[in-house]
C-alpha cells in the first residue's frame, strides 16, 4: 500500500528557519525510511502556493499569499508500507522531530 505523507502549514506566517539540529535529525529520519525500504520518493515543498479553482465552470487562479521566506515550508514522502497504521507510525515519528504542526496521511491508488 502506498501513502502520501505531507505537511500542511500556514504559509502566511513567517516561521523561524529550522535549526541545524533539526535538519540533521530529519536527514537521519529520511535515511531510516530508506534503510527500512519504504521510501519511494520524497522532497521539500516551497513556500509559495498557487490555487487553481473551478467554480461552476469558471476557473480562478490565486497566487500566494507569499511569505518573505525563501525557506522550504514543508515536505512530502511517498512510502510503500503494509498498512495505514504503519504509515501513521512513520508520520508520528516525523512529527516528533519537526515539532508543532500537521502531517496528513493519504493512501495513493494507481500510480
Amino acid at each position: 500500500m502506498r501513502f502520501l505523507l505531507y505537511t500542511t502549514g500556514d504559509n502566511t506566517q513567517p516561521s523561524a528557519p529550522p535549526s541545524q539540529q533539526m535538519i540533521d535529525e530529519v536527514g537521519k529520519f529520511t535515511d531510516e525510511t530508506r534503510r527500512a525500504g519504504i521510501l519511494l520518493a520524497t522532497g521539500g515543498l516551497g513556500p509559495s502556493t498557487t490555487r487553481v479553482r473551478n467554480s461552476a465552470g469558471k476557473l480562478a487562479v490565486t497566487d500566494g499569499p507569499f511569505t518573505e521566506t525563501k525557506e522550504l515550508t514543508g515536505g512530502f514522502a511517498l512510502i510503500e508500507v503494509k498498512s495505514r497504521e504503519e504509515a501513521i507510525e512513520w508520520a508520528k515519528r516525523f512529527r516528533k522531530i519537526v515539532g508543532d504542526g500537521d502531517s496528513l496521511v493519504q493512501e495513493v491508488f494507481g500510480g
Binding site: 527500512a36 497504521e85 507510525e89
Partner: peptide, 11 residues
C-alpha cells in the same frame, strides 16, 4: 493492537 502491529513491523 493495530498500532502495535505497525510498530512491530517497523521494529
Amino acid at each position: 493492537h493495530r498500532a502495535i502491529d505497525a510498530v512491530w513491523r517497523i521494529e
